[in-house]
Design a protein around this nucleic acid. Sequence first.
DNA 1: TGCACTTGAATAGCATGCTATGCAATGATA
DNA 2: TATCATTGCATAGCATGCTATTCAAGTGCA
Lengths: 143, 143
Amino acid sequence: MKFEKENSAGYLVNHTARLFAAGLQERITPLGITIGQFPILLELWIKDGVTQRELLEKLALEQATLANTLNRMERDGLIVRKKHPADARSQQIWLTEKGQAPRDSAYQAASDQNEHSLAPLSDEEREQFLGLMRRIINAAHSG
Amino acid sequence: MKFEKENSAGYLVNHTARLFAAGLQERITPLGITIGQFPILLELWIKDGVTQRELLEKLALEQATLANTLNRMERDGLIVRKKHPADARSQQIWLTEKGQAPRDSAYQAASDQNEHSLAPLSDEEREQFLGLMRRIINAAHSG
DNA sequence: TGCACTTGAATAGCATGCTATGCAATGATA
DNA sequence: TATCATTGCATAGCATGCTATTCAAGTGCA
C-alpha cells in the first residue's frame, strides 16, 4: 500500500490554510490584531455588546477556544466584558476604541491576502474553489 | 466597507482544514499517532535513518516545529534518535516497531477521511479541488 | 593553526484550537 | 420551595505551528 501526501486533500488543504494564515498574520500584525482574533472581530464589527454564547453561534469554534481568545483580546485591550443586566452568568462583549479602529484596514488586509494567494487562479476558478469548500463544509456539518 | 468571512478563501480554507484535521484525528487516535506526526511518519515510512535536516526538506514545516514534534514522537516511543557516524551535530532518525506498525492502518485512515470529506464532490471536482490547491501552493512558494 | 562563518538542532515563548472538567447561576419540577 | 438538570463560561492540559535565540560542531580561509 502507499499514500502520497501531495495527492491527499487533507494534506493540501492544511498546507494551503497555513499559507493563507501566514500571509494574513504578516499583514495584520501591524494593526495589533492576530489571525485567531480575526473571525471574532469580524462578528463584533457587525454587532458588539453580545454574549459569548451569541458570538459562539456565529463562529466555527469550540466554546473553550472562543473563551481563551477573548481572554487574550481583553488582555490586549481590544474588548471589555461588562455585566449582563439579566443573567449573572454571562457578560456582554464590547469592542474598545482599540478594537474598533483597525476594522477597515483589517478588511483590506484580508482582501489583499486573498487576492495574493489566489493570484494564480482565474475569477472562475476562484469561484469554483470557494464553492467546493462550501460544499465540503456543508456536508461535514450535515452528515 | 464590508467583509464576509463566508466569501473569504482564507476563512473557508481554514475551516475546511480543521474539518479534515478533526476527522483524521479521530481515525488515527486509536493507532497511537497524531495528526502532527502524520506527515513526518509518511516520510519515515518511505525512508528512515535520515537526519532531521533531510526530513525537513521534504516537509512544509519550520525546523523548530519538526524538532518539537520529533521530541513528542520519541517520548511516545515511535522513533529513536541515533548518533550520526560522520557528523556529531546531527542524528539519524529511526522508526521503532511501534512507529512502523500503524503504517497501513494510517494510510487507510487518511484515505477514508479524504473520501468522507470529499463525499459531496464528483471525481472530477475532487481533481479540480486538488489542482487548485496545488497551484495556490506552488505560486506561494515561487512568488 | 587559528579564527570567523555556517550548519544542524534544541529550546523558549507564544497563539491557536481541541477535549475534558469544574462551577456558579438559572430554570424546571415535584 | 427544595432539588435536580441545564446553561454560560472559565480553566487545565495538551498538540500543532510559528519566530527568535542559542549552542555546539563542522568548514573555510588567511
